[in-house]
Nucleic acid binder design. Sequence first.
DNA 1: GTCTATAGGCTGATAGAC
DNA 2: GTCTATCAGCCTATAGAC
Lengths: 225, 225
Amino acid sequence: MPLPSKDPTPTGPEPSREALLSVGTEIFAEVGFDGARVGAIAERAGVNAALINYYFGGKAGLYRAILGETLTAVADELKPLRSSGRPADERLQELIGSFAAIATRRPAFPTMVLREALSGGVHLEGDLFDRFLEVFRTVQEILEQGVREGAFRPVDPLLTHLGLVGGLVFFFATRTFRERLMQQSAAPLQPPAAEEFIRHLQELMDRGLAPDSGSRHRPAPEELP
Amino acid sequence: MPLPSKDPTPTGPEPSREALLSVGTEIFAEVGFDGARVGAIAERAGVNAALINYYFGGKAGLYRAILGETLTAVADELKPLRSSGRPADERLQELIGSFAAIATRRPAFPTMVLREALSGGVHLEGDLFDRFLEVFRTVQEILEQGVREGAFRPVDPLLTHLGLVGGLVFFFATRTFRERLMQQSAAPLQPPAAEEFIRHLQELMDRGLAPDSGSRHRPAPEELP
DNA sequence: GTCTATAGGCTGATAGAC
DNA sequence: GTCTATCAGCCTATAGAC
């Protein structure tokens, strides 16, 4: 990847275009499509507002470009998990960790996707729709494998998927709000770190999905007496 | 309660006001505050748009009235769970069930609250802020009690709270989207019913929070041999 | 309480110079 | 590619008649 630095002010080819994508991602996540003002995006990006039309054909075009780029990147990052031959319970733990890593690196991803879902996916046409499904298919695949192979008790993969992904997306999408909440609350608590939440969720799923019979963990090479 | 019928076209006192509250709830949930048009609300309510200003002093006023009414109602419905002397694991199951019942009866509740959280709670001032916290405190209280009394393994109540409520809110807030998703998907599946999800979540939490030692259920009055 | 008419502001988009 | 100037449309809120 030719990305040696994460310069907030892009200097590569088409810096204005990149700046609009980057800032647009932030603002769309913060206030949603309807709340976003093209003037505000251009200003924060240090770019003339007319360039949004030049590059993306309008506000909606910019939004779709961003959503597409985001979904593609996330789908790609999750792809290695699909072909792995590891046991399902391991893969699930990995998946949770990967999701958290992606969400931390791209904080706008959970928020934008969730916003899109709340609005019924009005901006998801053709391409975007498929990529959206692809991301969610990865999770479900792992769960199906786990149930099939007996690594998990016979849960419904879709229901499990919804609970798991719901918890993950919710946690990361409401992070900013939680920080405000904790500060203004009577006793100022500090909001939980992502790592803690991930560990918690991993353990909850590990225990919650464990099959009933005998030891739920795959046997270690040398089992203790 | 003097509400014998759930007439979509209210006929009680101040029917216009009621219609605006009712339709406003729907539309704000569907498209968010910025996406909502006062003209659309008035039209669907069969009421003149100027009445929004007359009754609520403007769009923001209507929104706050709705959010306040919703949060108050939910907090009230959840209140009985706080004083119950039952064991924590039972109360948690009840809580999940109650949440589902409320979310089914008031479909806009999870969506509006989630939207508010995604936007950092910009509309939550004073009163509303407190009522928001109150709802979430109920969940946490039960978890804290459970950990304290040993009904649950020693999990962090806040993290558990976030995972559980996140899953619940996500499920109900994305229901409409899921219906669209399932239809347009290659193989048209039918979206899972709320009851199934609730049962799944109840069992997941029951197993996931069970303490390590021995039997995790409180002993029944007559234990089976 | 409800309506009509209209004001006033803002927003996204375009045309055209450089 | 980037900028300025400008427009047309929409959206909320208000004034005032009934």
